[in-house]
């Protein structure tokens, strides 16, 4: 499953246009989809923040009879699962875990992908060749299969899941950054920095990387979405962290009773759907805002 690659290998034609940049925020706010996305995402973040306040008890606590349908008991508005745990509490607490998995694994992927891509693009030659071979290695192995193997090896936990997702999703970042750096390298201000004798590291950090930021931000927003989906897929296969209530875990755990109790999988499934949707809409909005050439069409 090339989830990691699927959406994140976004259009190769997305060069930054720093010259004509408007205020990105204003541009995003003109994009109705992105506004919707932001609202949904804010809701998810709000749920995560409010969870400890609204549901101070552990979401694992069995509070009622099992299999109570939604909207029948005020105390458990979204019903209970196979053990009598409150679905609403699970959703709220799960928001934090799912967003955390998405965010941290994306950050980790960026941490691997950006430096490698920058070095490959800036130094070129042998270094570039070697780094690209290395990247190819990870792109050639089926990514979902690799993620499964990694989680199985490290044993299922939040940490191993984040690591596995990060390890299969960095190659597109490297390719993107490399391409950007390649085109920036010959710019005058970069050359000027070279002449003044700044170190490679300083040049990359000060002059080159800041200008690759916008496509990376767009890519990252999509990667967070993909990571959340990946987490749910891994959980479906029973590779989730049994100590953390995440949306993926809830869907995975509810799937065996999907015939008797649709709500156990439907609500967390819906939460995943909405969040992934929101992140994609935001990504699109960001892309249009940061890359105004295309947004004219709207």
């Amino acid at each position: 499953m090339s989830r990691a690659i699927a959406m994140t290998d976004s259009p190769p034609a997305a060069p930054p246009a720093p010259a004509r940049r408007r205020s990105p925020l204003a541009a995003i706010l003109r994009h109705p989809g992105a506004v919707l996305g932001l609202v949904i995402l804010a809701g998810a973040i709000g749920a995560a923040l409010l969870a400890p306040v609204l549901y101070p008890a552990s979401p694992w606590r069995m509070v009622q009879r099992p299999f109570i349908p939604p909207f029948t008991l005020d105390r458990v508005p979204l019903g209970t699962d196979a053990l009598g745990r409150d679905i609403a509490a699970g959703l709220m607490h799960g928001a934090g875990v799912s967003l955390l998995v998405g965010l941290v694994s994306t950050l980790a992927a960026l941490l691997i992908g950006v430096p490698l891509g920058a070095l490959a693009g800036y130094l070129g030659g042998r270094v570039d060749d070697a780094l690209m071979r290395f990247t190819e290695l990870f792109q050639t192995v089926p990514s979902f299969a690799l993620a499964i193997v990694l989680v199985a090896i490290l044993q299922p936990s939040l940490g191993s899941m984040i690591l596995a997702i990060a390890l299969v999703s960095w190659p597109p970042v490297t390719r993107l950054v490399r391409g950007e750096v390649l085109s920036l390298r010959s710019r005058e201000y970069v050359q000027a920095a070279v002449v003044t004798g700044q170190t490679t590291f300083t040049i990359l950090r000060r002059e080159v990387l800041p200008n690759t930021l916008s496509p990376i931000v767009v890519l990252a927003s999509l990667m967070v979405a993909t990571a959340i989906l990946l987490e749910s897929s891994l959980s479906f296969l029973g590779l989730g962290d049994p100590n953390r209530m995440s949306w993926g875990f809830m869907v995975g755990a509810g799937r065996t009773v999907i015939r008797q109790a649709w709500w156990i999988t439907a609500f967390p499934g819906l939460a995943i759907l909405l969040t992934v949707l929101a992140l994609n809409l935001i990504g699109e909005g960001l892309n249009d805002a940061l890359n105004p050439r295309l947004s004219r069409e709207r």
């Binding site: 694992w60 069995m62 053990l83 029973g238 049994p242 755990a253 065996t256």
Partner: peptide
């Protein structure tokens, strides 16, 4: 350590933990 034999065992481990 739960038994890795499907969801019933997983749920059971969660209940015993509780």
């Amino acid at each position: 350590l739960p038994m890795p034999y499907g969801e019933t065992w997983q749920r059971w481990a969660e209940a015993v933990k509780q």
